[in-house]
Design a protein around this nucleic acid. Structure first.
Lengths: 230, 230
DNA sequence: GTCTATAACGAGATAGAC
DNA sequence: GTCTATCTCGTTATAGAC
């Protein structure tokens, strides 16, 4: 790569970032359904056809925003976890949960993009999966470390659910016992239920001291996957 | 009310229903953000200004759809519960949970309207609250009957959360002990987390046997609010 | 009074010619 | 990359039929 190409690449990166920033702004103002390449271009002083050099279609821009959001959330979870000693499993769990909540409250529109209602007419391609999996991997990592260390306690598995639980363990959490994998998936959905209700306003006039309420709910979820009580 | 008024009222009811039906169709196709009075009118062979006799604005139409959705969900929960003997508290709980899930899977777009991302630029008025509360009232009713009958077991309340839990009990579940009220609110959010993940596709390639998985997750939520284990 | 239709406003999106 | 002609939208004013 020579100097000219380096400059070109740098310019391309910068314009790409500017497009995504403006698109995120519109996401917040109008919602994902109304995201329009033309409006983004207008706001940037570009002509709409120029955007197609950076994103071949509106759906590709959406996909880029979704991947960025998942990565940003995943990184927040990973960073939060890094501050906690590996052996303090329950604290690791709640810290990660709180980081996810904090991220969602700080970026409600990006949260809506990845965990809210699907955008009509848009189907996320498989390329989003690795980024989407990052948060989950952090949570599974805590449970795995607990299993490999002090052990998981108090998680039962009804016979009826065993085949499905074994399949889940094999597919998404190899090394975890089926009862832990099944409890993990439920806790994962429930965690985002708590966060979604808060972000989308369902807790208005219901929960006041939301941080405290969440902290305890998250701890209870940790116990439900077998982590030692705090 | 004389005969002429009866006919007028009937016609008005019919047109109102036709407008809402068509609006629901568009909700499914384009999403709430793009719901358009003009398109509804066009599809019904009316002129757009005529719709204003029935709904004073686009937002009022949206509000009517939201109230209908909440009422339909609330009614589904109430009906499902009516089929279960009052004293079988755990079965009542899981039956109601399954009814909510069934309703959501059958009407994903109406589910998205009430429990998905907020519609940009729209704020639900207070008139939606009573309808929104119906499902919750059914769930609270089960817990209240359990408390007044066999008693609730295994729900603890950390001191730190007690003031908030007492406030929640007083505001939304009078007669319930604070630990039950707090657990109820958490279970409520977690229940809709499970349902939302399924409806919005987050369980794709993760959970296969979703009905079974949900049944057990719902039972576990019931236990978390203190209902006797099944 | 109750309804529908016509026409218009200001705003924004879109398609195509150039 | 630019311009224009033609769409969409929510909403209102007005007029006339029942």
């Amino acid at each position: 790569m020579n100097a000219a190409e380096g400059a070109r690449a740098r310019a391309r990166t910068e314009v790409t970032a500017a497009i995504k920033d403006e698109a995120r702004r519109q996401l917040a103002a109008e919602g994902a359904a109304k995201l329009s390449l033309r409006a983004v271009a207008r706001e940037l002083g570009m002509v709409s056809s120029a955007l197609y050099r950076y994103f071949p279609s509106r759906d590709d821009l959406l996909t880029a925003l979704i991947i960025d959001a998942y990565d940003s959330l995943g990184e927040a979870a990973e960073t939060a976890q890094a501050d906690v000693p590996e052996g303090e499993l329950t604290r690791r769990w709640t810290t990660v949960c709180e980081a996810v909540r904090g991220w969602a409250l700080a970026r409600p529109h990006e949260y809506a993009l990845i965990y809210g209602s699907p955008v009509p007419g848009y189907a996320a391609p498989a390329t989003t999966v690795p980024s989407a999996a990052r948060v989950t991997m952090v949570l599974i990592g805590v449970v795995r470390d607990a299993h490999d260390g002090p052990g998981l306690t108090g998680v039962s598995l009804p016979d009826e659910l065993r085949p499905e639980a074994e399949r889940m363990a094999a597919d998404i959490a190899p090394g975890l016992p089926p009862e832990a994998a099944s409890a993990m998936v439920a806790a994962w959905a429930e965690l985002f239920g708590l966060i979604g209700f808060e972000v989308f306003g369902q807790f208005t006039r219901v929960v006041e001291d939301r941080e405290r309420f969440f902290r305890h709910a998250a701890a209870r979820l940790g116990a439900s996957v077998g982590l030692p009580a705090a």
